[in-house]
Write a protein that binds this DNA or RNA. Structure first.
Length: 683
DNA sequence: ACTAATGTCCTTTTT
DNA sequence: GGACATTAGT
C-alpha cells in the first residue's frame, strides 16, 4: 500500500486535525474550507494507522455524502473495490435502520418492521386526531402536520410534550391533554402496525445504547466515530453520539455554526457549541481558509453573516483572486426574472461553463415554477432537487403499499392506502377489512376471508385478495417482478385517475428498474424511504443545469450560482418571525451565497402575479441591509406599466434609490446598460 | 356508506 | 392552485 503524503496534500490547519491523536475532537470548518477533504483524509489516516475500516462509524447528513466520502477514501488508499470499503457510513436514520433490523428484538422490535415516512405518519395521525378532537368542527382541529411536528420536536429535543407545545404551538396549550392522548395512541398504533417512523429509528437506537450488553457490543463494533454537519444534529442524536463514544472517547465532529439551517427538524446549535463541555478533553481545530470562492463572493458572505449576533467569531480568508463582483439584479416581475436567468445561463454555457456547474437556488421548491417553464420553452435541460421526492409521489406509494403489506401484514397505513384505491371501499369499509386481515398470521389464505359488504365493495375485495394471494405466492421473486405484476393491476386506476398517466407509467417503470438491483424486499423498502433523493439520471446528465432548494444545496459547490426570488416575501420566509428564526434564515442566505465559486447572481422580481392577484415586491431585507460595496446593483425596469405583451419597449434605468435604503457611506456603483445584461430587444 | 360537486383555507425547509 | 372539508345525491 502506497503511503499518503499528508503534509503535502493538506494545509497546516487540516493537517493538524487529520493527524490528531485519539480522543475527542471538534473541527470548526468554515464554508469551502476543505471540510470534506479533512474528513476523508482523517478516515484514510486512521486506516493507515492500522484501524480496521469496519471499526469506523461515519455519520453524514445524507447517504450520498457518506458514499462519496467512502469512495474518496477508497481511492486515496488504492482500495481495489470502491464499493466494498467496509466502513459503516450513512445517515443516523439509515444506520439505525440497519442496527434495529439486527438487534431490535432485544427491545421488542420485529425485524420486518416497515418505515413510516412523513406522509404515512400524517395520515395515521389524521385518523387519530379525528377520534380525539371529534368534538371540534373539522376545521377547528389541529391538523396532522402540526401534531406530527409537535411530537417529533418533543422526541428529537428530548423534552416533554408540554414543553414542546409551549415552545412551538403555544396557542394550543389548552389542548395539552388531548395532544398527549393523541401521541400515546399514535405510539400504540405504530406498535400494532409493526412500523417505525423516522423519530422511532433514532429513539430506539438511543434506547439500544442504554442496554448494558449492547453498550459493550457497540464499544467493540466502532472504535472511532466521526460526525459530519454536526451543527445540524439534534439533542437525541447528540445523546446517541455520546453513548457510542463515552467509553473510548474517539469522537470527531465537524461543523460550522454559521451553516445551521435545520432547527425546524429540532437541530440544536447548542450541540456544537457545548461539545467541549460534554467532552472536556476535546481539542478544537479551526479551518478558516476558503478554497472555494472568489474574494468578492466571500466578502459578501462575510458581510451577510456578520449581521447575525448569535455565533462563533470567525475569520474566513480567501486565497483566490478575481475582479468580478457578485451582481444583484432587480427584474420587473417573476417572468422577466426567469427570462433573465435563462439568458444568463445560455451565455455562461456559451462561454464554456459546463451545465452541471450551474445551479439556480431558491427558498421554497415552488419558487422554481416560472423558471422551469422558461427552461422548458428554450429546451435547456435541468435536474430538479428538493420538493417532492420521487418515492413520495402518489402513484409510486400506491405500488409500494402492496409490497409493504407483503413484508408486514399488520401495516395499517399501507392497507388503508391499497383499500381506498378500489371502488366501493371508503374509510369505514377499509377499517372493517383491516381489523380482520391484520390478525392473520400470513397472507396465504387471504382470499378465503369473507366480509359482509356492499356489492361494489365485495367485488373490489375479491380483486384485492386475489392480487394479494398471487403476490404471496411469488414473494420470493425479485422486487422488480413483483412491481411489474402490480403495475398491470394498477394501470386501469392510473389511467382513469390521472391525466398525466403516461408520465406516471414511466415513473413506475423507473421504479421497477431501480428495484431490480435489490433481492431483499425489506432492504429495498427501507432504503428508498431513507434515501434523501432519487433521480433516475442523477449525476449522469452532464448537460443539465441544477435547480435546487437552498437546503438541498448544503455541502455542495458550483462555478455559477443564481439565487432567485430574493424578495421581502420569501427571504426570510414570512413564517419565520422570531429573532432566532430570522437569524436562521440569514444563515440560509449565507449558505446559498457560499456555494458559488466564481459567478454569483442575486435576482428578485419587483412584482408577481399569482392566484391571489398582483403583488408588489421589494428586495429581501437581508439584501437591502447590505452595504452595496460588494455588489453590482442593477435595476431593470419597464419605462411604462402596461399589460403583458412582448412587443412593449423596455428601458434600463438605475432607479435603485426607490428600492434601496439610502446608504451615503457606500455609494452605489453605476453600471452601464449592456455591460452584462442580455439583449433587451430579444425580449 | 361511498362519490362527485362545491366551498374554504393555507401557502417552508426534510431524515 | 391545490388540499381538504362539507354537502347533496346515489
Amino acid at each position: 500500500m502506497s503511503k499518503i503524503d499528508f503534509q503535502k496534500e493538506l494545509n497546516s490547519e487540516q493537517y493538524r486535525a487529520v493527524t490528531a491523536p485519539d480522543g475527542p475532537h471538534l473541527i470548526l470548518a468554515g464554508a469551502g474550507s476543505g471540510k470534506t477533504r479533512t474528513l476523508v483524509y482523517r478516515v484514510a489516516y486512521l486506516i493507515e494507522q492500522g484501524v480496521k475500516p469496519e471499526k469506523i462509524l461515519l455519520l453524514t447528513f445524507t447517504n450520498k455524502a457518506a458514499n462519496e466520502m467512502m469512495s474518496r477514501v477508497a481511492e486515496l488508499l488504492h482500495w481495489q473495490d470502491k464499493n466494498k470499503l467496509p466502513i459503516w457510513g450513512g445517515t443516523f436514520h439509515s444506520i439505525a435502520n440497519r442496527l434495529l433490523r439486527f438487534y431490535g428484538a432485544k427491545i421488542g422490535i420485529q425485524n420486518n418492521f416497515n418505515i413510516l415516512d412523513e406522509d404515512d405518519a400524517k395520515s395515521l395521525l389524521k385518523n387519530i386526531i379525528s377520534e380525539f378532537f371529534g368534538h371540534l368542527a373539522a376545521n377547528r382541529r389541529p391538523n396532522a402536520s402540526l401534531a406530527k411536528e409537535l411530537i417529533s420536536f418533543s422526541i428529537n429535543s428530548r423534552i416533554s410534550l408540554a414543553e414542546a407545545l409551549e415552545i412551538k404551538f403555544s396557542e394550543w396549550q389548552n389542548f395539552l391533554e388531548l395532544f398527549e392522548k393523541v401521541a400515546a395512541e399514535y405510539q400504540k398504533r405504530k406498535k400494532l402496525s409493526n412500523v417505525l417512523d423516522f423519530d422511532d429509528l433514532l429513539l430506539y437506537w438511543k434506547i439500544l445504547t442504554e442496554d448494558s450488553e449492547m453498550q459493550k457490543i457497540f464499544d467493540q463494533k466502532w472504535q472511532y466515530v466521526l460526525v459530519d454537519e454536526y451543527q445540524d444534529t439534534n439533542t437525541l442524536q447528540a445523546e446517541i453520539i455520546f453513548n457510542l463514544s463515552k467509553n473510548h472517547q474517539n469522537i470527531l465532529v465537524v461543523g460550522d455554526d454559521a451553516q445551521s439551517i435545520y432547527s425546524f427538524r429540532a437541530a440544536n446549535i447548542q450541540n456544537i457549541l457545548d461539545f467541549p463541555k460534554v467532552f472536556p478533553r476535546a481539542t478544537v481545530y479551526k479551518l478558516e481558509t476558503n478554497y472555494r470562492s472568489t474574494p468578492e463572493i466571500l466578502a459578501l458572505a462575510n458581510e451577510i453573516i456578520a449581521l447575525n449576533t448569535n455565533q462563533f467569531a470567525k475569520n474566513l480568508q480567501a486565497i483566490l483572486t478575481s475582479y468580478v463582483k457578485p451582481e444583484l439584479i432587480a427584474l420587473e416581475n417573476n417572468l422577466r426574472e426567469a427570462k433573465w436567468i435563462a439568458d444568463r445561463i445560455e451565455a455562461l454555457i456559451a462561454e464554456g461553463v459546463p451545465a452541471i456547474e450551474i445551479v439556480v437556488l431558491f427558498r421554497a421548491s415552488h419558487h422554481s415554477q416560472s423558471l422551469e417553464m422558461e427552461l422548458n420553452r428554450r429546451g435547456i435541460a435541468y435536474q430538479m432537487r428538493g420538493g417532492l421526492r420521487f418515492f413520495d409521489r402518489a402513484h409510486i406509494k400506491d405500488i409500494l403499499a402492496w409490497l409493504k403489506v407483503l413484508t408486514n401484514t399488520k401495516d395499517e397505513v399501507a392497507w388503508a392506502r391499497i383499500l381506498n384505491l378500489y371502488p366501493g371501499i371508503g374509510p369505514a369499509t377499509a377499517q372493517k377489512i383491516y381489523a380482520q386481515v391484520s390478525g392473520l398470521e400470513s397472507l396465504e389464505n387471504i382470499d378465503q376471508v369473507a366480509f359482509n359488504l356492499g356489492s361494489k365493495a365485495q367485488t373490489s375485495w375479491q380483486q384485492i385478495s386475489q392480487v394479494m394471494t398471487s403476490l404471496f405466492r411469488q414473494q420470493k421473486a425479485n422486487p422488480a417482478e413483483l412491481i411489474r405484476m402490480l403495475i398491470k393491476e394498477y394501470q386501469e386506476y392510473l389511467t382513469a385517475q390521472y391525466p398525466d398517466y403516461r408520465q406516471r407509467s414511466e415513473d413506475l417503470e423507473q421504479l421497477a428498474i431501480f428495484s431490480s438491483s435489490y433481492q431483499d424486499l425489506n432492504a429495498f423498502l427501507s432504503e428508498i424511504t431513507l434515501q434523501e433523493k432519487f433521480n433516475a439520471d442523477d449525476g449522469h446528465d452532464q448537460e443539465a443545469i441544477i435547480l435546487s432548494t437552498i437546503h438541498q444545496a448544503k455541502g455542495l459547490e458550483w462555478q455559477a450560482v443564481f439565487l432567485m426570488n430574493l424578495t421581502n416575501k420569501s427571504l426570510p420566509h414570512p413564517l419565520a418571525v422570531s429573532e432566532t428564526e430570522q437569524e436562521e434564515e440569514r444563515r440560509l442566505f449565507y449558505v446559498a451565497v457560499t456555494r458559488a465559486k466564481k459567478h454569483l447572481y442575486l435576482t428578485y422580481p419587483m412584482s408577481q402575479f399569482s392566484y391571489d392577484g398582483y403583488k408588489s415586491l421589494t428586495a429581501s431585507p437581508f439584501v437591502s441591509q447590505l452595504a452595496t460595496t460588494f455588489l453590482n446593483y442593477n435595476h431593470l425596469a419597464r419605462s411604462t406599466m402596461t399589460t403583458e405583451s412582448d412587443d412593449t419597449e423596455y428601458s434600463f434605468e438605475d432607479t435603485a434609490g426607490d428600492f434601496w435604503e439610502e446608504d451615503t457611506k457606500h455609494p452605489r456603483q453605476k453600471i452601464k446598460p449592456g455591460d452584462f445584461l442580455p439583449d433587451i430587444e430579444d425580449w
